[in-house]
Simulated assay, not measured.
Amino acid sequence: MGIAARIDGLLSVGGAPGLHGLVVLRSGRVELERYGAGEDFRLNRSLGHVVFDADTLHDVRSVTKSVVALLYGIALAEGAVPAPRERLLPCFPEYPDLAADPARAEIMVEHALTMTLGLAWDETAPYTSTENSEIAMETAPDRHRYVLERPVVTEPGLRWVYCGGAAALLGRLIAKGVGRPLAEYARERLFGPAGISAFEWTTGDDGVEMAAAGLRLTPRGLAALGTLVLDGGGGIVPREWVAEMTRPRVRMGDDTSYGYQWYIGGGPRRWIAAHGNGGQRIYLEPERELVVAVTAGEYNAAQHSAEAALRAVTGEVTTG
């Protein structure tokens, strides 16, 4: 049974009710494209019932983090941002008290890229509550200071802790280094060259783009970014950076590892992925030249629709 038959079978029995969009590419060609309908949100603001099509922008939530990693690689090649092995706190001279703290002295940029900062952080509470560290960060007077002044709980590099604050720090380094806002830089150096003309980047109350979760893209836009990664940067992101970004660095359990803001899987088939709350996905299988882009609306809930769609695409299960 082919991919289209498996997906259509899944949809016909209501097996992915929260699916909003799906684009599948094989060897650079569109294998299938499907769109749904349902309530959608821009972060925590309801947009009501939306009928999706190829041109509908969608929150991609934490897929934004993986896009920030692509931008970091571009900026690094331009000499605009510090290398991964450079210490992080000297990059924020506006916080001399934190830079002078010996407990934070060994934190490097790489620890932000791999979410191993060693600082207290907890995103297990809903993303509607300030009990969630990312939401607390976005409501703080200074989001970057909020991240960097969290209590030190372990030596940096030892333990992976999911941390939107890490992406916020990376976004700040990029914007400061290139001398313009993230959205402007992304349009000029990544989205435009990749053929992505439609996007939005939600900002916080301070007017700064939310590097942890603020992007809105179409499924086709997500697929274009996936193709770029599969092609080793596509001449837009340095090939060497893509290789470093997608190299397993922190073991997360089972066959899954974390690179630089991207997930990497082993097992029978190597895969690379970007994940976002609600079921937003970029999923790549290099050996099969497969790119899958998913948007869905199961925010702050189990993301069954996206996972069911991915299983059907990859052939892990059949429907019927």
Rank of each mutant, 00 (worst) to 15 (best):
Y299N: 12
R159Q: 12
L190Q: 08
A198F: 09
T124L: 09
T203Q: 01
M252K: 13
S133P: 00
M115C: 05
G28V: 11
P286S: 03
A80S: 15
E155F: 02
G226L: 06
A5P: 02
P84A: 11
A112C: 02
A75N: 01
A301C: 03
P126F: 11
P156K: 10
G235W: 11
V24H: 11
A213L: 00
A194D: 13
E86Q: 13
L190P: 07
E285D: 15
I282S: 09
G171V: 00
A100S: 07
V68C: 04
F92M: 03
W121Q: 10
P84T: 05
T114N: 10
T154S: 15
G279R: 04
D55A: 14
L113G: 06
T130F: 03
S129C: 02
V50A: 10
P156H: 09
E94M: 02
G278I: 05
L11E: 12
T319E: 10
D205M: 12
I107W: 00
E33Y: 04
E316K: 10
P84M: 07
G235L: 07
R251L: 07
R220Q: 07
S66P: 02
L11A: 13
F199R: 08
P82F: 14
N44E: 00
G177Y: 04
R45A: 07
G165F: 09
V237D: 07
T124Y: 05
Y95H: 07
G204W: 05
H275I: 14
S46A: 14
V24Q: 12
A211V: 00
F41M: 15
H49A: 05
M108K: 14
T218F: 13
G234I: 09
E200G: 07
F52V: 07
D53Q: 02
V242M: 07
P156A: 11
A312N: 10
G28L: 13
A37T: 11
G192K: 06
E287T: 05
E106V: 06
L98G: 12
L70P: 06
G192A: 08
G118P: 07
V161H: 14
G79V: 06
D205R: 15
G315I: 14
A120W: 01
F41S: 11
I135A: 08
L22C: 04
R87S: 03
A54G: 10
G204C: 03
D59S: 15
A198T: 15
L10R: 14
A296P: 00
T246A: 07
F199V: 03
L22M: 01
A103N: 00
A105E: 06
G36C: 02
A302H: 12
A105I: 03
